[in-house]
Structure formats: structure tokens, C-alpha cells
């Protein structure tokens, strides 16, 4: 696993890596995410992939454009900046994630920075248990790719179960207040199905009869 330096005070992410960003509200989210995204914008050999509920990726991109002070539509046309969106069908969401990553690899970018804004139990997102499967599956997808994935979990909006089962059990690394740490709660994807997904309380209690 190689590393890629960030800005002077930015965390250095291993490549590949899948990181849960724990933050409280927009005020904590914006600086961390915008710095992460801006580094991709500033480096021609990197790509940026913004993902979330419909409209969220576009909003992220507008924020970056405001920060860098220039229109990024040419980078989008060139496939260096990609916007993807969630889907209530988890299989479609996985495709929405994998296809752009493969396209970036095909274009030969040294690194793809991925930002996926997390939601929970909302209509245009997979159901919670499927979303958790998706989060765990991401580790397998990026294992052979030059990807750093950052998944912001808003502690003020996301329910505790999403933090416990999602942020803490599907991400090998956690970033909080600028500090990047190995996550001891992480469950590798080959064990996550048995050790967590089949034990989710709402799936254990639900029954056919």
C-alpha cells in the first residue's frame, strides 16, 4: 500500500483506502471535504469522483468551483471530474460506483479521489442493510485500484446504528478532526456478511412467518 501526500497540514492517505470521515454538521464537513477535493482539482494526474443522493455531487462540485475560483466543466467533459448518484437499487448503485472508477482507470489517472456523502433510510438511497453491504463491498472494489474514498458521516444527522455498523465497521480508516487513524472496529468484507449483516437487529427480527 503506497501513500500519497496531501497538502502540508492534510492527512496522508494510503492508496487504496476507504475512509470514514466523522464530522458534526456542515461546518466541520466543508473544510475537510473541500481540501480533499481541491487536491484532485489541482493535480492534473488525479481524478475526482463526487457521489451522493441526486444533486449532492453537483452541489459538492459547485462548492469546489467556488473555492478554486474557476469553472470545472472542461474537466468534467474530459472525464477527470465525475459526478455519480445513489440509487435505491443497491445493485444499480454499485454499478454507478464501479463504472466511473473503471473509466478513470482506463484513462490512466494516478489517483481517483472519491467523496460519497452518506444518507440513511431515504427514498433515493438503498435500504439501510443494502447500503451497509455496499459500503463493505467498496473495500473489495477499490482493493486493486488507485482510489482514496472518503465517506462523510454526519454525527448530527445519521442515526447511531449507521455510525456503528457503517462508519465504524466498514471503513479500515477513520478521519476525525484532521486525525487519520486505523479503525479497530473494521470488519473485512469477507466476514462482514456473517458477522454483521445477518445479525442486524431489524433483519433478525423480521420473518416470513
Amino acid at each position: 500500500m503506497s501513500g500519497r501526500a496531501g497538502a502540508v497540514d492534510a492527512p496522508v492517505f494510503p492508496v487504496p483506502s476507504h475512509v470514514a470521515l466523522l464530522h458534526y454538521g456542515e461546518a466541520e464537513l466543508r473544510p475537510a471535504v473541500l481540501q480533499f477535493m481541491r487536491e484532485a482539482v489541482d493535480r492534473p494526474d488525479e481524478a475526482l469522483f463526487c457521489f451522493g443522493e441526486p444533486g449532492v455531487g453537483e452541489r459538492l462540485l459547485r462548492d469546489v468551483e467556488a473555492q478554486v475560483g474557476r469553472d470545472l466543466s472542461a474537466d468534467r467533459r474530459a472525464g477527470r471530474i465525475v459526478v455519480g448518484q445513489s440509487d435505491p437499487d443497491v445493485d444499480q448503485q454499485l454499478e454507478n460506483f464501479v463504472v466511473p472508477l473503471e473509466a478513470c482507470r482506463g484513462r490512466g489517472f494516478a489517483l481517483v479521489r472519491f467523496v460519497g456523502i452518506v444518507a440513511w433510510n431515504v427514498p433515493r438511497f438503498p435500504p439501510p442493510e443494502d447500503f451497509l453491504w455496499f459500503e463493505s463491498k467498496m473495500n473489495e472494489v477499490i482493493a486493486e485500484l488507485p482510489v482514496v474514498g472518503l465517506c462523510p458521516y454526519d454525527l448530527g444527522r445519521i442515526p447511531a446504528r449507521a455510525i456503528a455498523y457503517g462508519a465504524l465497521e466498514t471503513h479500515p480508516l477513520v478521519l476525525s478532526h484532521g486525525l487519520l487513524r486505523q479503525n479497530p472496529q473494521f470488519i473485512p468484507p469477507d466476514r462482514y456478511l456473517r458477522e454483521r449483516l445477518l445479525r442486524l437487529p431489524w433483519l433478525e427480527d423480521e420473518s416470513v412467518m
Binding site: 443494502d130 442486524l200 433483519l203 433478525e204 423480521e206
Partner: peptide, 25 residues
Amino acid sequence: RGHVRAVIEKLGASSRLEAVARAYR
């Protein structure tokens, strides 16, 4: 994709993982 959707629907599940959980249970 077609098979997965059919499995979910026929098992009366509302998600992929719910279908899997039912299958194990």
C-alpha cells in the same frame, strides 16, 4: 440482475440483504 430481482420479489423481501437473511434463517 433479473434473477436477483425475481428472488427478492418472490421471497417477499424489500432488499437484497433481507432476502439473504431470510434464506439463511
